[in-house]
Protein backbone atom coordinates (compact mmCIF):
# COMPACT_ATOMS: atom_id res chain seq x y z
CA UNK A 1 0.00 0.00 0.00
CA UNK A 2 1.13 3.54 -0.83
CA UNK A 3 0.26 6.54 1.31
CA UNK A 4 -0.03 10.06 -0.12
CA UNK A 5 -0.87 13.25 1.75
CA UNK A 6 -2.19 16.41 0.15
CA UNK A 7 -0.05 18.81 2.14
CA UNK A 8 -1.97 21.83 0.86
CA UNK A 9 -5.17 20.75 2.54
CA UNK A 10 -3.56 19.22 5.65
CA UNK A 11 -4.29 21.45 8.65
CA UNK A 12 -1.87 19.76 11.08
CA UNK A 13 -4.40 18.48 13.57
CA UNK A 14 -2.38 15.29 14.16
CA UNK A 15 -5.48 13.11 14.13
CA UNK A 16 -3.69 10.72 11.76
CA UNK A 17 -0.60 10.68 13.98
CA UNK A 18 -2.74 9.86 17.01
CA UNK A 19 -4.00 6.72 15.25
CA UNK A 20 -0.90 5.64 13.29
CA UNK A 21 2.19 7.17 14.92
CA UNK A 22 4.56 4.86 13.02
CA UNK A 23 3.46 6.36 9.73
CA UNK A 24 2.47 9.98 10.43
CA UNK A 25 4.45 12.41 12.55
CA UNK A 26 4.25 16.15 13.21
CA UNK A 27 7.29 18.24 14.04
CA UNK A 28 7.65 21.23 16.34
CA UNK A 29 6.70 23.56 13.52
CA UNK A 30 3.41 21.61 13.14
CA UNK A 31 4.48 20.24 9.77
CA UNK A 32 3.26 16.73 8.98
CA UNK A 33 5.82 14.16 7.82
CA UNK A 34 5.27 10.73 6.38
CA UNK A 35 7.62 8.47 8.30
CA UNK A 36 7.19 5.86 5.59
CA UNK A 37 5.11 5.99 2.43
CA UNK A 38 4.89 2.22 1.89
CA UNK A 39 4.11 1.03 5.41
CA UNK A 40 4.29 -2.67 6.32
CA UNK A 41 1.12 -4.73 6.19
CA UNK A 42 0.74 -4.98 9.98
CA UNK A 43 0.12 -1.20 10.11
CA UNK A 44 -2.54 -1.15 7.38
CA UNK A 45 -5.58 -1.25 9.67
CA UNK A 46 -4.24 1.81 11.54
CA UNK A 47 -3.35 3.62 8.35
CA UNK A 48 -6.84 3.02 7.02
CA UNK A 49 -8.32 4.34 10.27
CA UNK A 50 -6.04 7.39 10.02
CA UNK A 51 -7.27 8.11 6.50
CA UNK A 52 -10.87 7.92 7.73
CA UNK A 53 -10.07 10.14 10.74
CA UNK A 54 -8.65 12.94 8.59
CA UNK A 55 -11.31 15.67 8.53
CA UNK A 56 -9.68 17.24 5.46
CA UNK A 57 -9.64 13.96 3.51
CA UNK A 58 -6.00 14.74 2.82
CA UNK A 59 -4.78 11.13 2.99
CA UNK A 60 -5.01 8.88 -0.07
CA UNK A 61 -4.23 5.17 0.00
CA UNK A 62 -3.49 3.20 -3.14
CA UNK A 63 -2.76 -0.47 -3.63
CA UNK A 64 0.75 -1.10 -5.03
Amino acid sequence: MRVDVDFDSCESNALCAAVAPDVFELDDADQLHLVQDSPPERTWPEVEEAARACPKRAITLTAD
Binding site: S9, E11, S12, N13, A14, E25, L26, D27, D30
Partner: peptide, 16 residues
Protein backbone atom coordinates in the same frame (compact mmCIF):
# COMPACT_ATOMS: atom_id res chain seq x y z
CA UNK B 1 -11.69 28.26 8.72
CA UNK B 2 -9.08 25.60 7.87
CA UNK B 3 -6.28 28.15 8.04
CA UNK B 4 -7.31 29.48 11.45
CA UNK B 5 -7.74 25.90 12.69
CA UNK B 6 -4.13 25.20 11.74
CA UNK B 7 -3.09 27.82 14.27
CA UNK B 8 -5.43 26.48 16.95
CA UNK B 9 -4.11 22.98 16.32
CA UNK B 10 -0.64 24.18 17.16
CA UNK B 11 -1.86 24.55 20.76
CA UNK B 12 -3.99 21.48 21.33
CA UNK B 13 -3.23 18.78 18.73
CA UNK B 14 -1.80 15.43 19.81
CA UNK B 15 1.85 16.21 19.08
CA UNK B 16 1.68 19.24 21.39
Amino acid sequence: HGQVRRIINSAIAAHR
